[in-house]
């Protein structure tokens, strides 16, 4: 098993004249903790959408555990082990926290099409759901509807649902977006509990989270991967500083991972 968990090759996407993804290539090994940073409008979310199957790339390929999924639907990619969370909470707001988790579990277990089963008797799945809820500190609000719980808890529920699907590769799209500083640590604690063998691509703005979580970092600017390396190397580079401080970079030292 030498193949990468996720391998992205020469991915390109244009919106009219604008190249939002420009010949992006990288690989995630099993258990990777890779972060993708970049200023607003760099094309981070567009890239995630192409990886998860929401958007179709114009060129290039996405290979998940050796299977080319470039032309597969988002749902089929989930079935093959690609999970994701959303920058803007995308949950079942009128259902309870536990129902959100259990729904994902029952889809994964393949029992969601069986109208003769009683959900409350699926002991093993329920226990697993309770464990996941406890892992992310959601055990206190399992019976509340999602719209009633705090924003921080909703962010954690996003990750909990992704975990319930037991993904091989997990895309975390700004998991702490919109959270006050005080609540970011609970998301970080949640991220630390993700299974070690899961390959994770973290899209993040917050350098503190990147430093805490990632072992490798890449910088995306104007749809192009510009730099990659350890957090220290990348975060302290001139290019990152100039990009984040708003100074336009003129030439880039391009390094494809």
């Amino acid at each position: 098993m030498t193949e990468a968990a996720l391998s992205v090759r020469n991915l390109s996407k244009r919106f009219g004249e604008l190249a939002v993804t420009n010949d992006v290539s990288f690989e995630l090994e099993r258990g990777a903790r890779h972060a993708l940073i970049g200023p607003n409008g760099a094309g981070k979310s567009t890239l995630v959408h192409q990886l998860s199957g929401v958007l179709k790339p114009d060129a290039g390929s996405v290979v998940l555990q050796g299977i080319d999924v470039t032309s597969m639907s988002a749902r089929d990619r989930v079935a093959l082990g690609l999970g994701r969370t959303f920058q803007i909470s995308n949950l079942f707001f009128k259902l309870t926290v536990f129902e959100n988790i259990f729904m994902a579990l029952s889809e994964r277990a393949g029992i969601s099409g069986k109208p003769w089963l009683i959900a409350s008797r699926q002991k093993a799945l329920i226990e697993e759901g309770e464990e996941i809820a406890a892992t992310f500190g959601l055990d206190g609000c399992m019976a509340q509807t999602v719209s009633e719980v705090s924003y921080g808890e909703q962010r954690l529920l996003e990750i909990a649902i992704a975990m319930a699907l037991r993904p091989k590769v997990l895309l975390l799209d700004e998991p702490a977006a919109g959270l006050p500083k005080s609540e970011i640590s609970s998301v970080l604690n949640g991220l630390a509990l993700l299974p070690a063998e899961t390959a994770i691509l973290l899209i993040e703005h917050d350098m503190h989270i990147v430093r805490e979580f990632a072992t490798t970092v890449a910088l995306l600017v104007d749809g192009r991967l510009e730099l990659s390396g350890t957090p220290r190397e990348v975060l302290e580079s001139e290019l990152v500083r100039s990009v984040y401080l708003g100074a336009r970079h003129s030439s880039g030292s391009r390094a494809h991972a």
């Binding site: 259902l95 029952s106 069986k114 089963l117």
Partner: peptide
Amino acid sequence: ILVASPFGLALK
């Protein structure tokens, strides 16, 4: 029974 099943939850 259907409404209490995982399928019922999926409908919601």
